[in-house]
Nucleic acid binder design. Structure first.
Lengths: 248, 248
DNA sequence: AACGCGAATTGACCCAAATCAAGTGGCAAC
DNA sequence: GTTGCCACTTGATTTGGGTCAATTCGCGTT
């Protein structure tokens, strides 16, 4: 309902919290200055839609803070999340006129937007940007492929355990804590969003979370706050690697 | 069983059938010459494994001819295809030591391989390569996301219809024929490979193909040769867009 | 012509997850 | 403190696709 949108704030790139992880990570000072000249900030409230699939999109952007989702829909309303956007993640595709997915804010978010045309031109001239974007895109492709394995072959219980371990791992990496043994974190998603992520119904999500709780794999405080007493146990439930991914 | 591998043939890049669609598409003559110096050909027979997930991989490559698959596996043997590699598609990730997926030849294939280290160095210096690779990777990411919608939300019948329409569309684009009305093509995959692609069992694939035949959506000649009398009908069965994707 | 073999089909049965339908619990508004 | 709303839970029932098992269909070999 609210509009917010174009933001008064103008953060200097040097002070930006995602400076070293976003699409601008490899940029030199002079390149940053050029980016500054084509950037602007927009913010959205939790629940708002950032862009509708098919809409004209005259910018690309980085998520500065908060969480957003990419979703695809069949006409009869079935929806599948195809991307989870965390701080530093990139939205939009250079060279593409219109959006191919719905983008929605899950929490309040702040986005650093670049006007598309100037950004594309700059990308042609600035290998640092194209190189970084390539790296990020390859990472996303890997994530998408892992997700495909989950969607195609895992059971509901394994899907939930996988999602929990992904959130736990991410949370640990932000807080710089080891992702082993006992862990605690908040679920940034509603049951429905989890269902859309995992290709399940929200009822099944709820039941499986209850089952994992009953079996002592997780502990719950309220609906969203999760404690994992034994991370290895959770990883086994997720069905990935028997060895908690210590190698490689 | 057979070994083939390093190929005696040395095709000049100028005469290469995938010259204008592969990772080298944007390269100038001098850049091509440099690529020539680090490239070599390898061929594999249908059914052979090109690389095992986790193996050291000291090359990246383009598929020149034939079809290969990328698959991921859970320890208990459940497998999911996560990529279908057609001529001009790229295999391997610059900057990564070892393979993350199993790559197998579905038909006999020929691959144009580049030694990884020199390729990576060249990519740093040659924006044309990084730019093209970015474009290709973004396309693959889009394909992966469409695939995720299929895996997460489509019914078995819709999955089969979607796969058939993908194959039909690709076949039409190669033969430069309109992809409307009556169409005929060969399935390049076994029932099992289709099942791995779609997150189904091979029995379900077989049953749904029989059902589509029974309902007149497709006609079969042998196991592999398919005729679609009405492409629009198939697209409706696939569940994507009610309007056969005429817009955009 | 008989054999063997892998790919595919078909049937009978079963089960995990979807669907349909009540409830519960927390919290903001009046 | 009552009302209403929304996110979530839980139960009963159905069902789509998986599992197990038997054939069948090419097709190359001898």
């Amino acid at each position: 309902m609210a509009h917010d949108d174009v933001h008064p704030v103008s953060l200097a790139c040097g002070d930006c919290p995602i400076r070293h992880r976003a699409v601008c990570a490899r940029c030199e000072t002079d390149e940053l200055e050029e980016l500054e000249s084509i950037k602007y900030y927009r913010s959205f409230e939790a629940g708002q839609t950032v862009i509708w699939s098919g809409d004209k999109m005259d910018f690309v952007a980085s998520v500065v803070s908060g969480i957003a989702t990419l979703t695809q829909t069949l006409e009869d309303g079935r929806t599948q999340m195809v991307g989870l956007l965390l701080p530093s993640d990139f939205v939009g595709r250079p060279g593409r006129e219109s959006a191919t997915y719905n983008v929605s804010a899950t929490t309040d978010i702040l986005m650093c937007c670049f006007r598309r045309k100037p950004f594309e031109e700059m990308m042609e001239r600035t290998p640092h940007i194209a190189q970084r974007l390539l790296q990020m895109t390859l990472d996303e492709l890997d994530a998408a492929r892992e997700w495909m394995l989950l969607l195609g072959r895992k059971t509901a219980r394994e899907k939930i355990a996988s999602l929990l371990s992904i959130v736990a791992r991410r949370d640990a990496s932000i807080k710089l804590r080891a992702s082993a043994g006992r862990m605690t974190f908040d679920l940034p998603l509603t049951r429905e969003a989890m269902a859309d992520y995992l290709g399940l119904t929200l009822e099944t999500v709820s039941r499986q979370i209850s089952a994992l709780k009953r079996d002592g794999v997780i502990e719950l405080e309220g609906k969203r706050h999760v404690t994992v007493p034994d991370m290895d146990r959770l990883l086994i439930e997720a069905g990935d690697d028997s060895d908690g991914g210590l190698l490689a």
